[in-house]
Lab assay of single mutants.
Amino acid sequence: QVALSRTQVCGILREELFQGDAFHQSDTHIFIIMGASGDLAKKKIYPTIWWLFRDGLLPENTFIVGYARSRLTVADIRKQSEPFFKATPEEKLKLEDFFARNSYVAGQYDDAASYQRLNSHMNALHLGSQANRLFYLALPPTVYEAVTKNIHESCMSQIGWNRIIVEKPFGRDLQSSDRLSNHISSLFREDQIYRIDHYLGKEMVQNLMVLRFANRIFGPIWNRDNIACVILTFKEPFGTEGRGGYFDEFGIIRDVMQNHLLQMLCLVAMEKPASTNSDDVRDEKVKVLKCISEVQANNVVLGQYVGNPDGEGEATKGYLDDPTVPRGSTTATFAAVVLYVENERWDGVPFILRCGKALNERKAEVRLQFHDVAGDIFHQQCKRNELVIRVQPNEAVYTKMMTKKPGMFFNPEESELDLTYGNRYKNVKLPDAYERLILDVFCGSQMHFVRSDELREAWRIFTPLLHQIELEKPKPIPYIYGSRGPTEADELMKRVGFQYEGTYKWVNPHKL
């Protein structure tokens, strides 16, 4: 086992960053958080920038500027975001240094004079007029057009580079997404736009490419001749908990499936790229999406959770019991969808996408189930092999396979070949997804960000279904809070070829 401390991990990262040409360590950078008073800024962006600063992973002359409508001070920003920093008493001095680099400007999102004030403020910072500028839009999409237009007109660096990070949702359907994309691309070049999907920053999602293309053993079996089906799962054990009003506007397909799960599907299904260059990788992902037809209604199961009468606390409440959810809402909190990649490698292999709230566990994984062994000599005792990439929690890679049961006879039983990170790298604290992705933006690497043509294809696949749901308002199937979801989803999976045995229990190697 390799035991690495946080300091050692960050030392390795620093070495990698400083050796590259793309990370300008000594240049002045300004990180501007648009929507600095909001939840995302408070819980994710400010803490992430602090962790990067604490670990010495930001360029040395980096300033952080918050911008929002609320009249706040840096002290206010500190008060609301610091509880999420997880700072230790030993880091007190470092924390003071961090907040000394912070400033805040209040202004409207659609007022040109406010942006001119913001620009004057940035120019007044040390070497601010020639600094590289990175704008993070932690804002609702309704203000994107006004904000990007004003940034472009008043706040661009004339000497350094300018980059803009856009948070999902990128529209509600193909038409609104196209409108937003066309607007942003009329102001910024594609190499300046970073559409963030934080799932692409997760260690195991990034590991998929290495697993596939750096190991000879997987190449020959990664196709329709050997793989019976692919299941991509995202499960949350909690409901909307008072935030249903926002969720109800989008629903589970827009929230998770059309982005996170579809991105994971691309990494499983794509061909080997010409290189690890950002556009070479994204070219292959677009090719996969172009091979997927629009979702067919007979390959869809929609569910909505109801309270568990035997549960406790939140578990007793259904989705419609959330006071922020519109009365009688038919918005799905669970969806199972089957897609097919219609190309030579994957023809006929079902890709089953499942996601839901208020389920029995927290889990995100990719599961490849292989065909049955031909010419069975073990009297149907063999179960199908599976390769599982567990994204969260407890990152893991393992192969479910058959071995001989101890004893006199040739009785096979299920076991696993474990390729888990935790076994080799004991207690290594890896940077989280937002840390990686923000560092990628500083480096100018777009590999783990969504390109406009990729986004367009993703919406093309799901828009007809979303429009049909909005028009017909089908009643989702009720499922109990804390269950596996509607049984109809299991029946759909069985119908397209997935075999669920229920006889195997994964042993978490992190707890051995």
Rank of each mutant, 00 (worst) to 15 (best):
R254G: 02
R254V: 00
Q258F: 02
L261Y: 07
L261S: 03
Q263K: 04
L265E: 03
L265Q: 00
C266S: 14
V268T: 12
V268F: 07
A269K: 01
M270S: 08
E271F: 00
E271M: 05
K272W: 05
K272Q: 10
P273L: 04
P273Q: 01
S275Y: 03
S275W: 03
S278I: 00
D279G: 09
V281N: 04
R282P: 02
D283N: 12
D283I: 00
E284K: 10
K285H: 00
K285W: 02
K285L: 01
K287R: 12
K287G: 10
V288L: 11
L289R: 00
I292P: 02
I292L: 12
E294G: 13
V295E: 06
V295D: 05
V295F: 09
Q296C: 14
Q296R: 15
N298I: 12
N299I: 04
V300D: 00
V301Y: 02
G303I: 04
Q304P: 01
Q304T: 09
Q304D: 00
Q304G: 00
Q304K: 04
V306T: 15
V306Q: 14
V306C: 14
G307N: 12
N308D: 15
N308Q: 12
N308K: 15
P309N: 15
D310R: 13
D310M: 11
E312V: 13
E312N: 15
G313N: 13
K317D: 14
G318A: 11
Y319N: 04
Y319I: 00
L320Q: 09
L320C: 09
L320T: 07
D321N: 11
D322E: 08
D322A: 03
P323T: 15
V325F: 03
V325Y: 08
R327E: 12
T330S: 15
T331N: 12
T331Y: 00
A332I: 02
T333L: 02
A335Q: 03
A336E: 15
V337N: 10
V338T: 13
L339A: 13
L339I: 10
L339G: 06
V341L: 12
N343L: 05
R345Y: 09
R345L: 10
P350V: 02
P350C: 01
F351V: 05
I352N: 00
L353H: 03
R354I: 01
R354T: 04
R354P: 07
C355H: 01
C355K: 03
C355G: 10
G356S: 02
A358Y: 04
L359K: 00
L359H: 07
L359P: 03
N360I: 04
R362H: 12
R362K: 10
A364I: 11
E365R: 02
V366R: 03
V366I: 15
R367Q: 05
R367N: 02
L368Y: 06
L368C: 08
F370Q: 00
F370L: 11
F370S: 04
H371T: 12
D372T: 06
A374G: 10
A374L: 14
A374C: 10
I377E: 08
F378V: 05
H379E: 14
H379Q: 12
Q380T: 14
Q381R: 11
Q381D: 14
C382M: 14
K383Y: 15
R384V: 06
R384Y: 02
R384P: 10
R384L: 00
N385Q: 07
V388N: 07
V388W: 03
V388A: 10
R390M: 07
R390E: 07
R390Y: 05
V391R: 03
Q392L: 01
Q392C: 06
Q392E: 03
N394R: 08
A396K: 01
A396Q: 00
V397G: 01
K400I: 06
K400T: 04
K400W: 02
M401W: 11
M401E: 01
M402F: 12
T403F: 15
K404G: 02
K404T: 05
K405S: 14
K405I: 14
K405D: 07
P406W: 05
P406A: 11
G407W: 07
G407I: 02
G407V: 06
F409M: 14
F409Y: 15
F409G: 15
F410D: 09
E414D: 10
E414Q: 15
E414T: 14
S415A: 12
S415T: 14
L419S: 05
L419D: 01
T420M: 07
Y421Q: 01
Y421F: 09
G422H: 11
N423S: 15
Y425V: 07
N427Y: 09
V428M: 12
K429N: 14
D432M: 07
Y434T: 04
E435V: 09
E435I: 09
R436C: 05
L437N: 03
I438S: 00
L439W: 12
L439P: 00
L439K: 10
D440G: 06
D440W: 06
D440Q: 10
V441D: 03
V441W: 01
V441K: 04
F442M: 08
F442E: 03
C443Y: 13
C443F: 10
G444Q: 07
H448I: 01
H448G: 07
H448F: 03
H448S: 13
H448T: 06
V450T: 10
V450F: 05
R451K: 03
R451H: 04
R451E: 04
S452A: 11
E454D: 06
E454W: 03
E454K: 00
L455I: 00
L455G: 06
E457T: 08
E457R: 06
A458H: 06
W459N: 00
W459V: 01
T463V: 06
L465E: 05
L465W: 14
L466S: 06
H467G: 14
Q468A: 12
Q468V: 14
Q468G: 13
E470C: 10
E470G: 11
L471Y: 08
E472C: 13
K473A: 10
P474D: 14
K475C: 13
K475E: 14
P476D: 00
I477D: 13
P478F: 09
P478H: 12
Y479G: 03
Y481L: 08
R484Q: 01
A489P: 02
D490A: 08
E491R: 13
K494R: 10
K494W: 12
K494Q: 14
K494L: 12
R495Y: 13
V496Y: 13
G497L: 02
G497M: 05
F498Y: 15
Q499M: 15
Y500S: 06
E501L: 06
E501I: 11
Y504N: 05
K505D: 15
K505Y: 08
